[in-house]
Design a binder for these strands. Structure first.
Lengths: 211, 211
DNA sequence: GAGAGCTTGTGAACATGTGAACAAGTTTCT
DNA sequence: AGAAACTTGTTCACATGTTCACAAGCTCTC
């Protein structure tokens, strides 16, 4: 068994971490990695590593471990890497500008190919190699660059209408840095990264520990 | 019962969202809010809202709902807001600069009071009102500004040593934007915000849906 | 005051995630 | 070959999180 059935969300969220951890190993030819070694690099429990990898149908060798190169290949394939998913960044404020120029995205196979902003002064400019377009051009930009993913870094007030536009343009994967709730129809995946919430969680524990 | 016992992590993570959702309501005097209304605003299940709020010892009124102002007060208190927790940003690259100037942090009670960078050219400058210090000055900066939280936006290669410095300086709450694993001793809370992983999760679902 | 119509708070069922433990298989050493 | 030392894959028990369902309680109307 252990075929290519359904992979749990918690596992998917860790696969990228495993992959990056594995790339930190000097990968000579048929090098082997144990679940304990990988667990140590990734900062998780070894049993969890084995269970996660078993969902890939990945067959390590008992008494030996996992073959480094093959394991990297399998994780990459499971995550759909190898494909390149072009990204558009909406909202070129403080944060949007940083995200547009963030090399880590390109390196991971998510090149930022375009940015959108409603400010006419910014439209037409090029920021960190990324051209800025007006919102009206969205559908065209998505089609021309085969954009697969949108990143929203607009002010909260504009977020919902921007998301509606993105969905209209056919995008189905959105990463939001806006702290407010935005609604998307079924079939569209929205991942919210909420920096304020993260800080508030830290603040909560500081508060608890100091009282 | 429902006293001030232990509040589950999942609940803590949602309290800030509830608070921001409530602030979107025109809060006239003794205005009442039902769990269904708040659930709609926050995009979650109404039963979850009620259970979350019950952990606060918050007593709504059956048949009526929660009193808006009092509920906001209670959530704020539970989260330890009202206190102000000064933040230091480490690493003034693309992302660090954006975070240092991010108004949302200050507005939520987490003012960025200082930044650290190892580049001598940046040290001594002021970015978006935030002064940049050298790593050697960390302990002094932490003491002078009563820094409670650190945000790490350095290159991956520097992250571990920066974190070690922060811990030595007495900081116990760290938010990391670095994609690699960093180790912290017991008693230090590290929250990792991994943008690459988020994109890879979106990519995973795109890949699954298109195959 | 009795009853209808709400809404809260919580018990219980279900779903998901975690980690210890161990059988089964591989390698190494003698 | 046999024993010892490893490591994987999987099962099981437990912890956490989610959602339904409903009793208990409040308000309003008649």
């Amino acid at each position: 068994m252990s075929g290519h059935g359904h992979i749990p969300d918690a596992t998917v969220a860790r696969l990228g971490l495993y992959l990056r951890s594995l790339e930190a190993i000097d990968g000579t030819g048929g090098c082997k990695v144990s679940s304990y070694h990988l667990a140590d690099l990734a900062g998780v429990n070894a049993a969890k590593v084995r269970k996660d990898l078993s969902y890939l149908g990945s067959h390590g060798t008992r008494g030996v471990g996992y073959e480094l190169d093959y394991l990297k290949f399998e994780i990459s394939r499971a995550l759909g890497l190898g494909s390149v998913w072009p990204v558009v960044v909406c909202g070129i404020g403080n944060l949007g500008r940083a995200l547009a120029g963030h090399d880590g995205f390109r390196d991971a196979g998510f090149p930022v190919v375009a940015a959108m902003d409603s400010d006419p002064v910014k439209v037409g400019s090029v920021i960190d190699g990324v051209p800025v377009y007006a919102p009206i051009e969205l559908a065209e930009v998505v089609a021309n660059h085969r954009v697969a993913i949108a990143v929203i870094a607009t002010p909260a007030s504009a977020a919902q209408s921007v998301v509606d536009n993105l969905v209209s343009a056919g995008l189905r994967s959105i990463m939001s840095f806006v702290g407010t709730v935005v609604n998307v129809p079924d079939g569209v995946e929205l991942r919210a990264v909420d920096l304020t919430t993260e800080l508030q969680i830290l603040g909560f524990h500081l508060h608890r520990d100091s009282s």
